[in-house]
């Protein structure tokens, strides 16, 4: 085994501000699939109910979860097409597998209801009630042409990666869903 010593000039040193961790959970919600969003909200509400501060950072497909339902996003041709084919709101999103043009969504909703599992809108409301902080990603909003006014009222103003890192750095646990 050979060890190569890098010249000091080639190494990058970043000064980090050693902050202590809080009893906090930070989550990146990348997926816009109903089943993954469901898991995310179960974990978020469970953590909040266990006394943890919770921040959810929504990016890309995940933005669909915090959109008001029944609105079409997009400004230009592609953005509008994306908004049409990729409807937002908790009632419009389908499971990651076996959606089959909405049949899967309908079946899962029915099966969850029959078994007494809380619905996504109920869990969302619960999360808001418990003080879960929700932040959308500015960059993916720009790419997908999503106006911040189309988000639910509890959603914070858009942020970037540094804002998430600040939250994550002081958290005990971080999840990417």
């Amino acid at each position: 085994m050979t060890v190569v010593d890098l010249p000091l000039a080639n190494t990058l040193t970043v000064q980090s501000n050693e902050k202590s961790t809080k009893n906090k959970l930070s989550m990146v919600i990348f997926s816009g699939d109903m089943d993954k969003i469901l898991a995310a909200f179960i974990i978020a509400t469970g953590a909040a109910a266990s006394g943890m501060e919770v921040t959810m950072f929504f990016t890309f497909w995940g933005l669909k979860a915090i959109q008001k339902s029944g609105v079409i996003t997009g400004k230009g041709l592609f953005g509008r097409m994306l908004g049409m084919m990729n409807r937002g709101g908790l009632d419009a999103i389908g499971p990651s597998r076996l959606n089959m043009g909405g049949m899967g969504r309908w079946m899962f909703k029915l099966m969850m209801k029959q078994k007494g599992v809380a619905s996504l809108p109920e869990l969302y409301e619960m999360a808001v009630d418990l003080g879960v902080k929700m932040m959308p990603c500015q960059m993916s909003m720009d790419v997908m042409e999503i106006d911040p006014q189309l988000f639910q009222d509890n959603v914070e103003p858009p942020v970037g990666v540094a804002a998430f890192i600040e939250e994550a750095a002081e958290s005990k646990a971080t999840l990417f869903i």
């Binding site: 509400t45 909040a48 078994k115 599992v117 869990l123």
Partner: peptide, 14 residues
């Protein structure tokens, strides 16, 4: 009764 995860814990916490 009848509630599934995460509702029992959330109702208890509230």
């Amino acid at each position: 009764k009848g509630l599934l995860c995460p509702m029992p814990v959330i109702k208890l916490a509230k």
